[in-house]
């Protein structure tokens, strides 16, 4: 009975992994297809679709735009979230619970609604759509994330170290730069990279809030309109690779912290 039970567990694990990894496996496998359609039977492997994608000026422009928007919006979100977390962790502010709630609120709202609201605002204010109007939206969705991660990482030991630095004559900026930020380095890095991936992968805000220069997910979206093709597989696999590398970095950073 127990043995059958054990076996059943491993079978379930294998099936679940099959289900979870199947689409990504198919995506990556048929990016190497030596033919016009990314469906069985598999012929190849060939790198022609990767060469094709890397030579595509629009996709590469989208890639550059995505890197730019993701890094700038992650940095802004991290800066704002860091300051807010410092303010709320260090000082007793009236209505602190409400403040935290307001800062976290965008996390519980659909991206579609955030995008629609911003689009209405831009229309009313006469702001033309660009990469930066989408970047503003990405900061809105990533600010709560950065704030929550950093706020959770600020324990009493941090406050004690800050007080010691202040007693030794350090100014406020020096305390933040030489004590707070280095002690929070793993959390800061993890938050930045997470915010980066969220912006990098985000579609609907970028779709509604950009016009002429667009990000990579939007470019891929228009590529998909013409049906399935190994080109979409190749660029999709590249996008996936970037996210996986970023996540691995976060994992390593987090792992180092737990080992310490």
């Amino acid at each position: 009975m127990t043995r059958a039970w054990h076996l059943l567990g491993w079978v379930y694990l294998a099936l679940a992994f099959g289900f979870i990894l199947l689409p990504v496996g198919v995506l990556v496998l048929f990016s190497f297809q030596d033919g016009r359609l990314p469906v069985p039977p598999f012929r190849g492997p060939s790198l022609r679709w990767y060469a094709d994608v890397l030579a595509d000026r629009r996709l590469m422009a989208g890639l550059g735009n995505s890197l730019l928007v993701a890094s700038v919006s992650a940095t802004v979100a991290l800066g704002l979230g860091f300051l807010a977390a410092v303010g709320l962790a260090r000082h007793r502010l009236p209505g602190a619970a409400l403040l935290r709630l307001v800062l976290i609120a965008p996390m519980t709202v659909s991206y579609l609604i955030i995008a629609l609201g911003l689009l209405s605002l831009y229309n009313r204010a006469g702001v033309g759509l660009s990469l930066w109007t989408a970047g503003v939206g990405h900061v809105v969705i990533n600010l709560p994330l950065c704030f929550a991660i950093l706020y959770a990482a600020m324990g009493p030991h941090l406050r004690a170290a800050e007080r010691a630095a202040r007693d030794l004559g350090a100014g406020e900026a020096a305390v933040l730069w030489h004590v707070t930020a280095p002690m929070l380095a793993p959390a800061l890095l993890a938050a930045w990279f997470l915010a980066f991936t969220f912006s990098w992968d985000e579609f609907i805000i970028a779709f509604l809030l950009t016009r002429f220069d667009v990000t990579l997910p939007v470019e891929i979206w228009s590529l998909l309109r013409s049906g399935i093709s190994p080109r979409a597989n190749a660029i999709g696999s590249l996008v996936f690779l970037v996210s996986v590398v970023v996540v691995m970095v976060v994992q390593l950073v987090a792992l180092r912290r737990t080992r310490r």
Partner: peptide, 9 residues
């Protein structure tokens, strides 16, 4: 792992 592919992909 596939959690980190973009929605569209």
């Amino acid at each position: 792992l596939p959690f980190w592919t973009s929605y569209v992909v």
